[in-house]
Write a protein that binds this DNA or RNA. Structure first.
Length: 433
DNA sequence: TCTGGGGTCCTAGGACCC
DNA sequence: TCTGGGGTCCTAGGACCC
């Protein structure tokens, strides 16, 4: 039997005489959220500006102070400054001018305000960002259909079989894509093209903004090994600190360790992955479609809330989160059966609880009921800064026989849900929806 | 004066079943 | 009276990413 298989194999013709080398591109939009604002307010070009933080409507503020004035004529002096910002937000995007001050994404607004008090601050315009995100992705798909969506401002593209995708290692196609995106949206992007996703991702950072970088297998030692270990997509702050402790600072340092050593110190799976990554090995395909696993809604309060003292406010937020996640499920056509909650305490510790139902649902009342059960199993003595609701084990609603979706929820008058402990037990009878 | 909101994947223990 | 060995599901936490 084994002999037979070998013989057959020997007579198999090669799958392809001269296979194309895999060419994978990573593209991300330059300072996307900020660039979107610059399209509307070109008078801010070149100024330090950060996007993020807010529930505030910048347009409302601006147009209230300058009624009837077109956006591009609003004087620069009228824009809100970081030093005047109050609140708990973090920075989503900083312009290159703001980055000069050491301000960067994910930084707390208050810290950023100390570094660059005069920076202009605007909230994210999600509608406009989504519109432009769809536009640039559509532009790419028209040219190179094998595109993997990696978020609002990022994609991978498989150049391998695209006509012209191999010319100059991918540079010709990358230039075409840049030009078409620029024409369609007015925005710039940076592209890295390499033998795989891992290296393409690193390469796209080499020439920002509006840059193209081509990396070949042979460039591993000269271009990739000198990079900080943290530049590997998948090495975060924890792994980086641990690597550093072992004296491993660069990608090359990791590559210099044996696979066995890495497995011993970082675990069978992560250690082996680290070794492959450092040697530039990554066979992951570009995936054009995927199903969501979970959907969630969460919110950080403007001030920390206490389960007893702020019971009413918390209850209202809780209901709202359940309704929003249910609306998301229905809008996108999914049902799920694991309902979870997430709390963040004032000391920033996080707790999660979840409960798997025996049926699928997208009903806000069912979600709230199940989430309320989970809430009973968590410590509510500390003050809370965040509350979240999640629905997991998702399935497209259409894939289930209707009988499986959800037995109709109890319609027995107003539901009484003991979500948060009562301040005074005698109030309990008024606790209803 | 700290640290958003939306996700994915992995690990690890216990329940439960064969 | 010395206790196997898989497999799968559920749950909680955590790392990481955009």
């Amino acid at each position: 039997m084994a002999q037979q298989r070998r013989d057959n194999w020997q007579h198999e013709p090669p799958a392809r005489f001269a296979p194309n080398m895999r060419r994978i591109a990573h593209l991300d939009m330059d300072a996307f959220f900020a660039s979107v604002e610059l399209l509307r307010y070109p008078q801010l070009k070149g100024l330090p500006m950060i996007i993020g933080g807010g529930r505030r409507k910048a347009d409302d503020l601006l147009h209230a102070s300058h009624p009837g004035l077109p956006a591009h004529e609003i004087p620069v002096a009228a824009f809100p400054r970081l030093k005047d910002y109050v609140g708990r937000g973090v920075i989503t995007t900083a312009t290159y001018a703001a980055r000069q001050f050491g301000v960067g994404s994910a930084m707390g607004m208050m810290k950023a305000a100390r570094l660059c008090p005069e920076a202009i601050v605007l909230p994210v315009d999600f509608d406009e960002v989504r519109r432009l995100s769809r536009a640039f992705k559509e532009t790419i798909r028209e040219i190179a259909p094998l595109m993997e969506d990696r978020g609002i401002d990022e994609v991978y593209i498989d150049f391998t079989e695209v006509p012209g995708g191999q010319r100059e290692g991918g540079r010709v196609l990358a230039r075409l894509i840049q030009k078409c995106i620029q024409e369609r949206t007015g925005l710039t992007c940076s592209i890295g093209v390499a033998p795989n996703k891992l290296i393409a991702k690193m390469a796209s950072e080499f020439n920002k903004p509006n840059g193209i970088s081509i990396v070949h297998e042979a460039d591993l030692q000269t271009l990739i090994w000198p990079l900080a270990a943290r530049k590997i997509n998948g090495v975060g702050p924890k792994a980086d600190a641990k690597l550093e402790k072992s004296g491993l600072r660069t990608v090359g340092d990791i590559a210099g360790q044996s696979r066995e050593w890495l497995v011993e110190h970082f675990g069978r799976s992560y250690g082996a992955w680290l070794h492959d990554a450092a040697w530039g090995r990554d066979e992951r395909p570009v995936v054009t479609e995927s199903e969501p696993v979970s959907m969630s809604r969460e919110t950080t309060f403007e001030r920390d809330l206490h389960a007893v003292r702020d019971r009413e406010a918390l209850g209202a937020v809780f209901t709202d989160l359940c309704e929003r996640v249910a609306a998301d499920l229905r809008r996108k056509g999914y049902v799920g059966r694991t309902i979870g909650i997430k709390l963040r305490y004032d000391d920033f510790r996080t707790a999660t609880r979840d409960l798997t139902l025996d049926h699928y649902t997208d009903d806000p009342r069912v979600i709230r009921q199940a989430a309320g059960q989970s809430l009973k199993r968590v410590d509510l003595d500390r003050r809370l800064r965040l509350l979240g609701v999640r629905v997991g084990k998702l399935v497209p609603a259409g894939d289930l026989p209707p009988s499986e979706v959800r037995p109709s929820p109890p319609e027995t008058g107003p539901q009484t849900l003991e979500m948060f402990p009562d301040a005074t037990p005698k109030d309990r009878k008024f606790d209803s929806d």
